[in-house]
Design a protein around this nucleic acid. Sequence first.
RNA 1: GCCCUCAUCGUCUAAUGGUUAGGACAAUAGGUUCUCAUCCUAUAAAUCGGAGUUCGAUUCUCCGUGAGGGCACCA
Length: 486
Amino acid sequence: MEPQIDIQTGQEIRVRIAPSPTGLLHFGTARTALFNWLFARHMGGKFILRIEDTDIERSTKEFEEDIVTGLRWLGFDWDEGPDKGGPFGPYRQSERLDIYAHYLQQLLDEDKAYHCFCTKEQLDVDRQAMQTQGTTPIYVGRCSALTKEEQVQRITAGEASVIRLRVSEGVIEFHDIIRDVVTVQSALIGDIIIARSLDLPLYNFAVVVDDYEMKISHVIRGEDHISNTPKQIVVQRALGFATPEYAHLPLILAPDRSKLSKRYIETSLNDFKAQGYLPESLVNFMAFIGWHPTDDKDVMAREELIAEFDLERVQKGGGVFNLEKLEWLNAQYIKRLPVGILVDELMPFIPQEWNTQRALLERVAIVEQDRLKRLTDFVESAAFFFALPDYEADLLAWKGADVSMTKGHLRAVLDILRNAPESQFTKDALETLLMPLAEEKGRGDILWPLRACLSGKKASPGPFEIMPALGKSEVIHRIEVAIEKL
RNA sequence: GCCCUCAUCGUCUAAUGGUUAGGACAAUAGGUUCUCAUCCUAUAAAUCGGAGUUCGAUUCUCCGUGAGGGCACCA
């Protein structure tokens, strides 16, 4: 497909996900990645991964690894990124320091930025004062009048400083695809710090430089960034850069409607993998927090999402994370899996011993498929197929039936099954074989003890599902065990 | 405190200036070969409040209320 051009800007459509490796892959980050990816794929544009590791104290390689692994698992293939390069690399901010230094120096030379020598303590006092006065806490501008000579002098004298951008008063207005126009007074921003030094740029500065250098056409990010946008626009203007199109996504909320935190769900998306969720379910689920198609579809495959996704239809209000819906969706996707694939997916979760017979595993998977909400459920619900659990004899009695009667019923079933050839061990054949007896003696009287002795559990799949999976000899054996118990 | 944003069933959401306000999850009640699950059917459940515009507003405007986010030499 030829790269799509944005009608409004005439630019190629390029979006990015820009996580900072200061923690595990968060659910919200994954959802932002998804919306960027869907938009890019829908529009035929490019999706870029950029690692924002300017915070050298908190960023780690391990977190970056976790994030990249998670995004890959979800299937968000990026066109450019630190692992695969691209025409506008490097894609890790820590490797772009010379680029930032260049623009920082330019701003300093043009006197659009200046060195500020205020200490953190001073700034804290200022902030406190403004807050008690009821005004917006911004920089008071103590250092803004310093001449270049004075700045150089104090730096050479060894005084610590940061770099601030001069922000003039006025109105900043920007367009948001989801929210239309957002207006902010720049007087409420003040002279923002854009770098600690030439080598240590800060977020609001680095983002602007990178988005420009990487020719990002649409910035799609969480609503928590709305208040950063005017600051970034101010930087763009100082640098003479065009403003990209924005789309601020509604936040994902915990059930108490506060910002989703690690207190409610596991922080790393990779934990969802460990808990037995399929990437397809997560993708479908995440897409539906903040977006829905026009029709009533509720299970949508990746390709359908791409085909129908539309940023303009994204919800404005935050959405609560609903675990039950995720589980339901996961069950839907598990149900739709071909057995072979299901078994493959199950592999990482099952005990070694079960893995000796692929054929048995497949038969069991067929029985359990409709009962699984998560892949991990299989371990517990299917255990009885691989080893008959210990159970009490009275489990075998159906609604107060006495021992000798139950025993007799099981013997009758055993007789029928002993004479049946292995080829008769299919669901349908077994039903025609045994149902007449069950109708005669009472369904519960025959079926309950049979099922109970096969599974050793009071709740399990039905006997006609269990028997074909187990095979003749094991079925006979389990019935004999039961008769012995009685 | 200041700034920004938002508001349809419990939850995710659909819809239109005129409909019985639709679907899904969850809940409840039934049904299908014993149990559990699946599956099927049905029931209950919403336009935050007040003005205005209009023949008509859930939809447009304003005010109020409520909620969320942001206010770092973090991102």
